[in-house]
Structures are given as C-alpha cells and as structure tokens.
C-alpha cells in the first residue's frame, strides 16, 4: 500500500497533466495551474521545514560528535538563528520594520541589519565572488581541455583555436576567410550536434515521464524496477 498510493497518484495526476496540455478550458487548465503552483508551493513550504530540520540535525550531530571542522557548524547554526530572528521579527527592509526594530535602544541599533540589508551586503557579494571565481576555473579547465591527449581533445583544441582566432581582427588579417569558417563551425556542425543532443533529451524526457506515469520506472520510490 505504501508504494501503491504514490503510484496511483502519479498515474492519475500524470494523465490529468497530459489532458491539460491539450485542453485549454479553464475548468481543466485552472485545476492544472492550482496543482502546479499552489499545491507545489504548499508542499514546498512543508518540505522547507524538513529542510531546515535537516540542516539543524546535520550540524548538531557534527558538533556533538566533534567531527572534523565542527566549529564551522557553529557558524552555520548561529547564522541560521540570527537570520531567522531578523527575518521573523525584524521585517524585510527599513520601510517595513518588524516588532524588533520598532523598539528604541538596541532595537534602534539593530535596525541597520534588516533582512534585505543583510542579503544585499552579505549574500549578494558572496554569490558574486563565487561567480567571479568561474573565470579562474575556466582558465584551468581550458588548459586541461587544450592538452591534445587524444583525437577528441585535439579536435576540440583545433575548433576552439579557429573560433577564437576567427572572432578577433588578427584572424581576418592573417587568413581572410577565417571568420566565415569560424562562423560556419558554430552554425553548422555545432548546431547539428546540439540539435542531435536535444532530440535525444526530448525523447528521453518523454520516455522517463511515461515510464514514471505507467509505473514501469520506480527508482524514485527507491525500489528500482521491482
């Protein structure tokens, strides 16, 4: 029964979603929208509680066991608590202060640390820093890719070299038809390969959905195909 109920739910809702794809009438599309947006959001809200529970348990266990690098877990947990207090009682931004910041004294001082202020001044720069690291990772990946270890890597190297040279004025100066050739590589063989992959992805997506709806694929239940 534990497996049968999810399978029946998936079958019914999967067929309903397929019907909603071709029936635009509000009586069908409306229900579909509710399922996709509202129900998913409600499930998301409940699972977020489980997610927060997971963070707390994971790091609490690390601290309890004094696992390697356990002091970092204190950082995570204390950040979680401070963020939760500021978010729940401090309001989102200075224009809509919460209970915490309406009081004078410490509350007045703390009003500099609204949720939005923290987000803009801590999360955004940190995320930007991580994103900026991509430039260095790209350089090291390029070095790795451009070592002509085998035929495929050599082809990659040659194609990349032609494309890069074709994109700068020097390439045109050295070999006049090079930019056109680079463009051809990008628009013909590259697009052909991409479309081939996209065909496979499209078919794979439909096949996986069908297998799940029909109950052939049960890996998501942890039970494999049995």
């Amino acid at each position: 029964m534990k497996r049968r109920i999810p399978l029946i739910l998936v079958l019914v809702l999967g067929i309903f979603a397929a019907i909603a794809f071709v029936v635009p009438h509000p009586s069908v599309r409306g229900v579909d929208d509710v399922m996709r947006n509202d129900v998913l959001r409600i499930i998301g809200a409940f699972s977020l509680v489980l997610g927060v529970g997971s963070i707390i348990r994971h790091h609490y266990m690390k601290i309890k066991r004094k696992a390697e690098h356990w002091p970092y877990s204190w950082v995570t947990l204390s950040t979680l608590v401070v963020s939760a207090i500021l978010g729940l009682f401090g309001g989102i931004d200075p224009n809509a202060p919460g209970v915490l910041f309406r009081a004078g004294g410490v509350g007045q001082f703390l009003s500099n640390f609204h949720m939005q202020t923290l987000y803009d001044n801590i999360m955004v720069p940190l995320a930007a820093t991580m994103f900026a690291l991509l430039a260095f990772f790209m350089a090291s990946a390029a070095y790795r890719a451009f070592r002509a270890r085998n035929l495929e890597a050599t082809l990659l190297l040659v194609a990349a070299f032609v494309l890069m040279l074709g994109a700068v004025p020097l390439g045109r100066m050295l070999i006049k038809p090079l930019p056109a050739f680079a463009e051809w590589i990008l628009t013909v063989p590259n697009t052909a390969a991409k479309r081939g992959i996209m065909f496979g992805v499209g078919l794979g997506t439909i096949a996986t959905s069908l297998k799940i709806i029909l109950g052939i694929e049960r890996g998501w239940l942890g039970g494999g195909g049995s």
């Binding site: 992959i197 996209m198 496979g200 794979g204 997506t205």
Partner: peptide
C-alpha cells in the same frame, strides 16, 4: 543528454 535518462 539522453544517456542521463537511460542510466537507471
């Protein structure tokens, strides 16, 4: 691409 869907 599709190998991802064939994997399981």
């Amino acid at each position: 691409g599709e190998e991802l869907y064939a994997a399981s």
